[in-house]
Nucleic acid binder design. Structure first.
Lengths: 154, 154
DNA sequence: CCTTCTCCGACCGCATAGGTAGGATTTGAG
DNA sequence: CTCAAATCCTACCTATGCGGTCGGAGAAGG
């Protein structure tokens, strides 16, 4: 049971972008765009692979791009306004802990095996999914990039 | 992001066993052993595959087996005493949301990329993993098999 | 026009999931 | 004693997705 590195790499890209935009107030996203190449360099990740990931982020409208020389990416919204749930969902797809459970937009879970008897496991997956989504929603990109906080662990 | 059907199938087997042992008080596990074949039949799952899963459950000492004719499986402990965290861990392996985070027995999380700078994502994975494990620990097999409860959702 | 980028599709090797097959072994029942 | 029902174990197969690479087509600045 895991998230894949897609989520990790993608989040690192987002975090990198957030850190750079953090010049003044941490609210203004529209600084100079940052090239994926420089991010790949800094984070030690393969550029070609990041391109795939960042495409998902763009389709989810979490980043904006400028093409051509001196192009690159910027956050589409301030980091304080981007929840990790959005980011993870964009990268990994739906946050459904198991096949038979699907989250129809938004939030409501249904079990495809409904009918006869709902599989007894549904209650479990529902709760697990709920707790994941909840913690993912409670955390913004800004929380990630500011490790110098009140550190509300656990 | 998902649990695999390994978890689902395995849990359904456990739930099936728990339901049968539920004759009197719900605490006595040692009734007649139930054959995997009958479970596979009842749940509509491939027997040969369940054998693999139930092996994991046995190695984790969650079920006990009796071989030979009229053999089968029984819960090793009362259902009220088996947490879903144990079951899922037995079936899926460690509950670590991402590669770089490993849970050294027990509970303490460490990031293999520690050193230079801990990856900014660690805080996130730590929380997510915590919330998964917590909800998995709070739920027993008995909770699953008794859908007629006070239904403490969310 | 040339370089620097974003974009896009195709491809590849590998690991794992999901499932099958076949047999060895144990045990109760006739 | 023998047969059938069951667990046990090892090996294998196939499909899918992940992590990653490649080549090239567009866009924008100098």
């Amino acid at each position: 049971m895991m998230f894949s590195t897609k989520a990790e790499y993608g989040i690192r890209v987002m975090a990198h972008l957030a850190k750079q935009a953090d010049g003044a107030n941490g609210d203004a996203p529209a600084t100079q765009p940052i090239s994926l190449g420089s991010i790949a360099d800094a984070e030690g990740l393969p550029l070609a692979y990041l391109e795939h990931l960042v495409r998902r982020l763009r389709k989810a409208e979490l980043v904006e791009s400028r093409r051509g020389a001196h192009g690159g990416y910027t956050l589409a919204r301030p980091a304080t306004d981007i929840t990790m749930a959005e980011v993870v969902a964009a990268l990994e797809g739906d946050i459904a802990p198991i096949e038979c459970i699907t989250a129809d937009s938004d939030g409501v879970l249904t079990c495809s095996r409904e009918g006869s008897e709902p599989c007894p496991t549904k209650l479990l997956w529902t709760r697990v999914q709920g707790s994941i989504v909840r913690t993912l929603n409670e955390m913004t990109l800004d929380d990630l990039v500011q490790p110098l906080r009140k550190a509300t662990l656990a």
